[in-house]
């Protein structure tokens, strides 16, 4: 195997490993248990995305993608900072399932509509 071929092969191997890493991170994003775990998984997804773009840059040889990786890093950092502030000022540890809340609101609305409808 020539060195050139080995380099091509290593690019494909690292694509594969990155995809598995993406998968594991998404499993943690879904399992969660706390909001902080989910924020951490999103941060990790951004980091993995930067790595993926870096491999893609090597694969295509088109170095303009590098700017995209740096910009993604900037935006991802700001997103994590914003999420951390949200977590702190929200002051909740356990996620109440979003479905319950929505149903409550809907119930209230429908009940109100019904009572309104009944009144008028």
């Amino acid at each position: 195997m020539s060195p050139q071929e080995f380099f091509e092969l290593s690019i494909y191997i690292s694509f594969g490993l990155s995809i598995v890493a993406f998968l594991f991170t998404i499993i943690r994003l879904i399992l969660g248990t706390t909001l902080a775990d989910r924020i951490l998984s999103l941060d990790m997804l951004v980091t993995l995305g930067i790595g993926f773009i870096a491999i893609f840059t090597l694969h295509t040889g088109f170095y303009a993608y590098l700017d995209m990786a740096i910009a993604l890093g900037l935006v991802g950092f700001l997103a994590t900072v914003a999420f951390a502030r949200l977590l702190m000022h929200r002051g909740e540890t356990n996620d109440t399932p979003a479905g319950d809340k929505l149903e409550d609101i809907e119930d209230d609305d429908t009940q109100q509509a019904k009572t309104n409808g009944g009144a008028s």
């Binding site: 990155s18 890493a21 594991f24 991170t25 943690r28």
Partner: peptide, 26 residues
């Protein structure tokens, strides 16, 4: 020669990313 070195570096980097993801799970 440089290509082989860079290939190993890339695979090592991908393995570190994978370890980070496994750590996130475990």
């Amino acid at each position: 020669m440089l290509d082989i070195f860079l290939g190993c570096l890339l695979i090592a980097a991908a393995i570190f990313n994978l370890i980070a993801a496994i750590g996130l799970l475990r």
